[in-house]
Design a protein around this nucleic acid. Structure first.
Lengths: 168, 168
DNA sequence: ACGGCGTTTCAATACTTACTGAAAGTTTAG
DNA sequence: CTAAACTTTCAGTAAGTATTGAAACGCCGT
């Protein structure tokens, strides 16, 4: 396969996959594009390449920056802003994991916290079952929380050695 | 808080959260409802409780069954089908993890596989960078794959003891 | 303090996804 | 075989999300 073709396929497929995992197509495509690009790109170059509007680029670039996946750059003497993606894939992975933890796990933990204390009035069996469920979810949630926290704070090497040794 | 109120809040919030992590509101609400319900429910009871149409219940119940989160039950002498949720939260968690792995990680691994062999024609630096990126993603992907596979196949206790000990 | 260059915002619109409800299908009992 | 009881399908519609494009904004050099 030719490099240009490979890059194009990467951008397109990454975009399509994006929708599978809850982020919008454009954001995923832009991320992919910036990943395969050695040099930083301007808004206009992104618009041009992906054939999307200025507003769309602006919105999604801000989102990518807020995830920490992309950085703004200004070249001295130029007023234009350039965008460049974090290329260290381990960092990319941990950024994505912690962002998703924030969106997906933390709210569950919060909810469960609120449902802790249920009065003991009513069907005893029913209450017992409910409390057990809440407790089980809480236990899982806090385990998941610890695991994800550890992974995102860890050195890549820790996962490669210690964790993978346990897994294997 | 009163039990009925707690259950209601659980169903509503779980539904709202569902949309955050890419599954539709109704499916999440139905799952929550069946989780807090000790007894199995019929389509009609679900329709009634969540105020949704028969078609909607049918569609989403099938999805829940396909995830393995809900089972169909028939009571002898009755023609109606009853639905009951898997109550073991560890199983619930592993089912969700493996379903999401299938939807989110496996396609990435597949894509990367396809982009392995890029010809060496063109800018050498560019090709080198691209190949490195692919290789890095592949490494992460296969690590994640192993970790998730191990967790979903593990006993709950293994996570609680061995894994958590490593995590500290 | 004006003009040019670049960025941001946001209402209108297009696109995508979820839901309804009625019709068709299936199963069982008599 | 027919009817009743129940489930499934699916075209039409509603609801929700993403995108556009034009106007407003901000910054800098002169």
């Amino acid at each position: 396969m030719e490099i240009t073709e490979a890059k194009q396929q990467f951008v397109n497929t990454w975009g399509a996959l994006g929708t599978q995992w809850g982020i919008n197509k454009t954001m995923a495509q832009m991320h992919a594009l910036l990943l395969v690009q050695t040099e930083a790109l301007t808004q206009d170059e992104i618009m041009e390449t992906l054939q999307i509007s200025r507003g769309n680029v602006n919105m999604n670039v801000r989102e990518l920056v807020s995830w920490g996946l992309v950085q703004r750059q200004t070249k001295r003497g130029e007023r234009k802003e350039y965008f460049i993606a974090e290329k260290d894939m381990w960092k990319v992975a941990t950024l994505i994991i912690s962002e998703r933890k924030k969106r997906e796990l933390d709210p569950i933990i919060k909810l469960i916290g609120q449902l802790q204390d249920v009065e003991n009035t009513g069907n005893a069996e029913e209450i017992k079952a409910f409390k057990k469920m809440i407790k089980d979810i809480q236990k899982l949630g806090s385990q998941a929380d610890k695991i994800l926290h550890t992974i995102t704070k860890a050195e890549e090497n820790w996962v490669g050695s210690k964790l993978m040794k346990l897994i294997k």
